[in-house]
Design a binder for these strands. Structure first.
Length: 504
RNA sequence: GGCGCUAUCGUCUAGGGGUUAGGACGUGAGAUUCUCAAUCUUAAAACCCGGGUUCGAUUCCCGGUAGCGCUACCA
């Protein structure tokens, strides 16, 4: 059997329900839709699936749009931008669902069902006990029209069910090939509840068809429901779209990725200081690889060019935070410094307790970021990396046993003695080069070099035995010390003075 | 229970009837550095099991197993 021809221009949609934050799994679905649309020169549509009114909230919709935009996606039609096939929010079109359902009933393709939920539940359990597929037995399938009218007139509540044809249902999936379901496992499904509220599986079909969706790209949790939807397309006499069911994203324990595993929503990643292009690159690599499979770095534009839906893996994938961080590091390094600084700024401001930074403070933080960001996985680690600059507590430094051990050697005393004298004789600010030559002088005068020389000085200046290079640290300390901050940054000299005060 | 989907290093994957089964993350070792991180070099590491088909299967087919999903008047 041939693959059905794709008629007309590509139109795809991402149809989330606005229930909280955008999960990475959904974000990846959105991304694949977007990539496919952009590369095919098609249309990408955002549609809000809010049939589940209990769980939907308007503010979630706003956040959802914000998060998707943050990732770098844009759409041609949606609740915020409009489009030729409104509405882009399901709650706005209940009447349409009623009308199509009535049409199916009048054409004999659907029927009214008076079975009560208790009855159905009983039948279901019986079938399960006999190890049978718990199908609807078809009780109301062939009721006489007069009886239907009589019972309706009597006020008996009824739902509307679709008649599933007596033949297997098959459809094409771009990532899995042809999928076939025997009709024995698909039974007549309710499309309108007795309350009048339409059911999801029915609503998607109407929406997708009305919006002329050509490719339904979604999570594989919808795969088993697809035959029902195909039956609906056929009953309505509509062309069945092409499908692409994307695999699930799992946590390290192979369970569906969830909050239990840590960060899972776009907002979480943004708040961790993960760059959107890193996340996008990583998500694209989850289930997709270019021919050859030996390239990992793809900018959004490159993804649009290289991405191929038919090459997407059908098997589920474990989300690997380490690999995401590796990509993030890469994008932090190659990113425009001004932009990286801007994204990093809030993390530093929070750590320093600054509400309204002056432009001098912002410039200084940009320098801090430029110097240190390349060694950080995510930008929220920056304050920690800059701890030797941001915080200075000589008393605690001296008290720490591992530091005392270093400081209490004769060579360390000699180094500290000379070093302190030299710094105190300096006029401020001390440049990185000047600092370097001072260390050289200390080395010459004490004949001490290597760790024995640097370690005591590092402890004296930062309170720690490890951290960024002095070349980077010194200018940042000097610049920071000229700023007015809630908790001042100390210059090299001020640090030495504070240290000396404790020694005497 | 039934049905469906899936199965290559720890992880993401490339590949495909005959290959030294390739790349990346991570891990180990080394280099560099005052130190940490970063960086560079390098090593270890995989075709789920059983039957077929075939001269030859990791690759194709069937079965098993396992994981996941669906099985609603949930979405």
């Amino acid at each position: 059997m041939e693959q059905p021809s794709i008629s007309g221009k590509v139109r795809v949609r991402f149809a989330p329900s606005p229930t909280g934050q955008v999960h990475v799994g959904n974000a990846r679905t959105a991304l694949f839709n977007w990539l496919f649309a952009r590369q095919q020169g098609g249309t990408f549509i955002l549609r809000i699936e809010d049939t589940d009114l209990d769980r939907s909230e308007a503010r979630y919709e706003t956040q959802l749009i914000e998060d998707l935009k943050w990732l770098g996606l844009d759409w041609d039609e949606g609740p915020d931008v409009g489009g030729p096939y409104p509405p882009y929010r399901q709650s706005d079109k209940w009447q349409v669902y009623q009308d199509y359902a009535e049409r199916l009933v009048s054409e004999g393709k659907a029927y009214r069902c008076f079975c009560t939920q208790e009855e159905l539940e009983r039948q279901r359990e019986e079938a399960l006990q006999q190890h049978l597929q718990p199908n609807y037995p078809g009780t109301c399938r062939n009721l006489a029209p007069e009886e239907v009218e009589r019972r309706r007139a009597a006020g008996e509540p009824c739902a509307i069910r679709l008649k599933i044809p007596e033949r297997p249902i098959r459809f094409h999936d771009m990532v899995r090939g042809w999928v076939e379901f025997s009709n024995e496992v698909v039974s007549d499904l309710i499309i309108i509840r007795s309350t009048g509220v339409p059911v999801y599986n029915y609503v998607v079909v109407i929406d997708d068809a009305e919006m002329k969706i050509t490719h339904v790209i979604r999570g594989d949790d919808h795969l088993s429901n697809t035959p029902k939807q195909v039956a609906l397309y056929e009953a309505l006499g509509w062309e069945v779209p092409e499908f692409a069911h994307l695999s699930t994203i799992l946590g390290p324990d192979k369970e569906r990725l969830s909050k239990r595993h840590g960060a899972t929503s776009l907002a979480n990643f943004r708040d961790m200081g993960v760059l959107p292009e890193a996340l996008m690159n990583y998500m694209a690599l989850l289930g997709w690889a270019p021919t050859g499979g030996d390239r990992e770095i793809f900018s959004p534009i490159e993804l649009v060019e290289e991405f191929d839906l038919t090459r997407v893996t059908p098997s589920s994938a474990v989300f690997d935070f380490e690999k995401l961080y590796w990509l993030n590091r890469h994008y932090i390094k190659v990113g425009v410094p001004e932009r990286i600084a801007e994204i990093a700024e809030p993390f530093c401001l929070r750590a320093l307790g600054i509400d309204k930074p002056t432009s001098d403070v912002r410039t200084w933080l940009a320098h801090v970021t430029a110097a240190l960001a390349s060694s950080v996985n995510k930008l929220d680690e920056l304050p920690e990396r800059a701890a030797s600059i941001f915080h200075f507590d000589p008393a605690a430094a001296i008290a720490a046993p591992e530091n005392a051990e270093v400081l209490n050697t004769t060579s360390a005393r000699a180094v500290v003695y000379i070093f302190v004298a030299k710094i105190l004789a300096e006029s401020e600010p001390i440049s990185a080069d000047r600092f370097k030559s001072l260390i050289k002088e200390v080395q010459k005068e004490t004949k001490i070099k290597g760790p024995a020389l640097f370690h005591p000085i590092r402890i004296l200046l930062t309170g720690a035995q490890s951290g960024p290079e002095f070349d980077k640290l010194v200018p940042l300390m000097e610049e920071g010390s000229r700023l007015e901050l809630p908790k001042p940054i100390l210059s090299v000299k001020q640090r030495v003075v504070a240290f000396e005060a404790l020694q005497s």
